[in-house]
Amino acid sequence: MSLFDWFANRRKSGPISQERQERDIADGLWSKCVACGVLAYTKDLRANQMVCPECGHHVRVDSNERIRQLIDANTWQPLDESLSPTDPLQFRDRKAYSDRLRETQEKTGLIDAVQTGFGQIDKLPVALGVMDFRFMGGSMGSVVGEKITRLIERATQKRYPVIIVCASGGARMQEGMLSLMQMAKISAALECHREAQLLYIPVLTNPTTGGVTASFAMLGDIILAEPRATIGFAGRRVIEQTLREKLPEEFQTAEDLLQHGFVDAIVPRTQLKKTLAQLISLHQPVTPTHHQLLQLEAIALTSSIADSGK
């Protein structure tokens, strides 16, 4: 078919009907951008890492897709995959927590809201944690806390940089105070990693709020954020209700935080892997001193005690 015929055919068939459009979206062939309304071929959208080619809107990606985007092919070694949540408080709101867990596990194929592992980014070894918003809003309970803590502890031993892609509404209320305590537990592991002079980069994606913001999201040596991500501690609605303040549109966006000095850079997703590789290669670990080696041994000892205690 010549180009001319192709145009002729196209003109003949006219604009895609509304009905046809909806069918294609339902089939997943086309995706409509929630920000600009433009239709994009889903394959193109994927190829562009789920960033709208028209307006740059970042569509939320799950943890599998994120790992695929960041980690060199065939280098991902997942850690602690069998660590599973329980229902320590026998919690029940309108639904039992144990039912909620089982349903979410079936729906998402995940065991809890974070995947952790070692892998390479442009051949540089890293310890990577990726939160998954699909699993109860990426909320942090015992499993999320334990997996991230173990990841950081092992990274300290191996002298790897840590990268955590945050996507979370905060602490998981269904595990009560155990969830709150994970904030301190992870911060403790980060303190040791930091003391060993190793690099930690949290990547704040939409949304990063509550207890995650008040712990590991804000403890990076360098903090990166995705464009337009919501990042904050107190919820926008809570603030508006408490003090009857009307908040501006850009309140608690990545751009707003950049302006107030709480993130180092806003990095479009398509540039993220490259940026991380660049930062990691700029921050090669310092050779440990004798004193630090002794401390590393101590950490290894405590974490092995903790492991065997479970």
């Binding site: 712990s215 403890l219 904050g232 501690f233 107190a234 408490t242």
Partner: peptide, 20 residues
């Protein structure tokens, strides 16, 4: 929970204490 507290880094201030 105020806008000013957010602008001054409510999350960062608590996170820093947890680690230190």
């Amino acid at each position: 929970p105020t806008a000013e507290a957010e602008y001054k880094g409510a999350g960062e201030a608590i996170a820093y204490n947890l680690r230190e």
